Simulated scan of single mutants.
Amino acid sequence: MANTASAQKANRKIAARTAVNKARRSRMRTFIRKVEEAIAKGDRKVALEALQAAQPEIARAAQKGIVHANLASRKVSRLNHRIKALPA
């Protein structure tokens, strides 16, 4: 338990930031899941559209520090690679 007013305020700020970060991470994962579901169905066109929507969300998560920049880049790259492997 925080003993000082400044420590109590810090705890409140941390809780608020954590809530925002969880929401952003969840949003990013939702967009990624939509791409993966389209890939699983084998629908290349829908998968490409979903990836186009997911890329800015993944980049935004990296920019805000929710995920590491390399992780974001790797996610996009791997999704793109899986889409390209689908039959046209």
Rank of each mutant, 00 (worst) to 15 (best):
residue 33 R to F: 02
residue 68 H to D: 10
residue 79 L to Y: 07
residue 50 A to V: 07
residue 41 K to F: 12
residue 30 T to I: 12
residue 77 S to K: 13
residue 46 V to K: 13
residue 86 L to W: 08
residue 62 A to P: 02
residue 55 Q to Y: 15
residue 71 L to Y: 15
residue 52 Q to Y: 15
residue 42 G to N: 13
residue 60 R to L: 12
residue 59 A to I: 02
residue 26 S to Q: 05
residue 84 K to T: 13
residue 83 I to W: 07
residue 68 H to V: 09
residue 33 R to K: 11
residue 70 N to V: 03
residue 87 P to Y: 11
residue 71 L to K: 15
residue 83 I to R: 04
residue 52 Q to R: 14
residue 66 I to Y: 02
residue 36 E to K: 09
residue 47 A to R: 07
residue 63 Q to V: 03
residue 74 R to Q: 11
residue 66 I to G: 01
residue 72 A to Y: 05
residue 37 E to C: 00
residue 61 A to G: 00
residue 35 V to I: 00
residue 82 R to Q: 14
residue 47 A to L: 06
residue 59 A to H: 10
residue 64 K to Y: 00
residue 42 G to I: 10
residue 60 R to Y: 11
residue 75 K to A: 09
residue 56 P to A: 09
residue 55 Q to R: 15
residue 78 R to G: 12
residue 46 V to T: 13
residue 56 P to R: 05
residue 76 V to T: 13
residue 65 G to V: 03
residue 60 R to G: 04
residue 58 I to C: 07
residue 49 E to M: 12
residue 63 Q to S: 09
residue 30 T to K: 10
residue 48 L to E: 15
residue 40 A to M: 06
residue 81 H to G: 09
residue 33 R to C: 04
residue 64 K to M: 00
residue 30 T to E: 09
residue 66 I to Q: 02
residue 79 L to M: 06
residue 32 I to N: 06
residue 53 A to F: 12
residue 67 V to G: 01
residue 58 I to G: 02
residue 55 Q to M: 14
residue 28 M to P: 03
residue 32 I to T: 02
residue 39 I to A: 08
residue 62 A to M: 01
residue 82 R to W: 05
residue 82 R to T: 10
residue 80 N to A: 15
residue 73 S to V: 04
residue 29 R to S: 04
residue 45 K to F: 11
residue 25 R to Y: 05
